[in-house]
């Protein structure tokens, strides 16, 4: 497969990573090499194979519906770039 510059711009936007126009070419070249490696697996016939994500067959454990957490806002907001009146502040969002 080959990745276009537009592909790079599209996925960089989706991933919210700024890629400047002069970086696009380099990123594109590196990713192409990696996809060459990845595309090795495309030839394998996997028809009817059940995909696997965890080795041992796991089932979701269900937690009892009990409140176990208490307010730790001050501690949790100590890492915040910007917070006020209990809110995390971010650049204004316009809907």
């Amino acid at each position: 497969m080959s990745l276009s510059a537009q592909d790079i711009e599209r996925i960089a936007h989706l991933a919210r990573i700024r890629v400047t126009p002069d970086e696009v070419g380099q990123v594109q070249a590196k990713l192409e090499g990696i996809f060459k490696l990845i595309d090795d697996m495309q030839s394998v016939n996997t028809k009817g194979v059940e995909p696997m994500s965890h080795g041992l067959d796991m089932v979701l454990r269900l937690r009892d519906d009990v409140v176990t957490e208490s307010n730790q806002r001050e501690k949790f907001q100590s890492n915040a770039p910007e917070a006020a009146e209990g809110y995390f502040l971010v650049p204004k969002v316009i809907e």
């Binding site: 996997t46 059940e50 995909p51 696997m52």
Partner: peptide
């Protein structure tokens, strides 16, 4: 496809 390969 990768998930299926994991199984194989």
């Amino acid at each position: 496809q990768a998930g299926k390969l994991r199984r194989l």
